[in-house]
Write a protein that binds this DNA or RNA. Structure first.
Ligand SMILES: [Mn+2]
Ligand SMILES: [Mn+2]
Ligand SMILES: [Mn+2]
Ligand SMILES: [Mn+2]
Lengths: 226, 226
DNA sequence: GTAAAAATTTTGAGTATTCAAAATTGTATG
DNA sequence: CATACAATTTTGAATACTCAAAATTTTTAC
């Protein structure tokens, strides 16, 4: 996880998005069009960049087939994600920013921190495993702690769970989660699920029950309490 | 000191160097060649950039005459310097980095912090007036606290002073200052000054006297104690 | 007061990144 | 299978930044 190569912020962002998207598609190959969409550039731009990344040995590229991170690319991607998530936690814990607003800050800072500063932040925070959204923080060596989750869209009814992770970065959505008292750490019970109406009725510990749409519920991941 | 305009890091660096250099030359006009030298680009590059800055209303430019910051340019420059110095102090005080190494970190981070994060850091540090090197931190409004200094190259002999500021960013020089116990805050007496040999004999409070060359002594600024 | 030296600007070109629009390829449909 | 459609790639051009080297202007020195 050294930062010897010195990739540009642009390249780091491509790698990071590539990594996140690969987690989805199970064969690992990502169409360039999808990469373009999530990086926010036109398809042609992504194709060009992918060829550059392939030259640098960061991705494998099959024209008209898709892209996939090489192990070098994955290593760099994990480094960026590690910086991003440590920064987010730092901003929330030490500078008292709201968890809904740290993502965009981290998006810029993740390209500007040295390994040394990151190590100090890691130490200051006590070598944390999860960021404010419950996302796992990759270790310096590249290892990512994995946890088994279920989402509120699929977990058992009438059983106690704890919100462990909210897979969203949109500030408005996160603020809603906060308003609804569904932030990570909260104990919840799903009281009902209406597949036809696509709604879930959730009751946060010692709070009135509330209704969520299925897509929103799917973004709230829970684990068994304890 | 809003960051509405969103200047590029490159432009911010030019403005900052311009500001620092202008402090020297009293007429305020800086030759493009000098700007080039301290930004670290070729003369032609500086000329090109200066024309761009002039278009943006950040500098006045007289071909073959020199450059000078406009008030808009100065406002931006002070913003960058403020960020730089607050970051340096933050890195030393909160993350425990050595004062000799924070300059280069700050050089990158100064372009990545939002106003909001900066405000939090400012608050956390208790709205400090000086950075770890004794350099004044411009206020958000643009005001820069000024102090009268003398340097060890010119101050009175056999009189007690306090080191207030070390005008250098070079890590090796700063480490030497530290080894010699001449960091800001130290009480010192100049015991002798030999203009022919260009040396100054300084005695830090309760330490043996030591010899400095005149150029080094000139970088160590002192004030009356109290 | 001209010739050499120094500083500055201009020119031509390269890298990194991007877009719009045209060309290509692969796929699905009838 | 031929055609239509979608995805992808290519092409041509733009912006931001940079350098090397040529051209120009100013300064200095004799
Ligand atoms: Mn994030
Ligand atoms: Mn980013
Ligand atoms: Mn500094
Ligand atoms: Mn800088």
């Amino acid at each position: 996880m050294s930062r010897s190569a010195e990739l540009t912020p642009t390249v780091e962002n491509y790698l990071k998005h590539l990594f996140h998207q690969q987690q989805q598609s199970p064969d690992g190959w990502l169409p360039t069009g999808r990469l373009a969409a999530c990086v926010g550039v036109t398809p042609g731009t992504a194709t060009t960049m992918v060829k550059t990344l392939a030259e640098a040995g960061l991705v494998d590229y099959e024209p008209r087939g898709g892209v996939r991170l090489t192990s070098a690319g994955e290593r760099h991607a994990l480094g960026v994600i590690r910086r991003h998530r440590l920064i987010e936690l730092f901003l929330v814990r030490e500078l008292d920013l709201d968890w809904s607003e740290v993502h965009d800050e981290a998006e810029r800072l993740e390209h500007a921190l040295s390994d040394k500063v990151l190590e100090r932040i890691d130490r200051l925070l006590g070598y944390p495993q999860f960021d404010p959204h419950g996302d796992p923080i990759p270790r310096a060596g590249g290892h990512v702690p994995t946890t088994e989750y279920q989402s509120l869209a699929e977990c058992a009814l009438h059983r106690a769970f704890v919100v462990a992770r909210v897979t969203a970065q949109d500030a408005v959505f996160l603020q809603m989660i906060q308003r609804l008292h569904l932030v990570p750490g909260t104990r919840v019970v799903v009281e009902a699920r209406d597949t036809a109406a696509q709604t879930v009725t959730v009751r946060p510990r010692s709070r009135p029950a509330l209704n969520l749409g299925l897509p929103a519920a799917a973004k709230i991941l829970v684990t068994a309490p304890g």
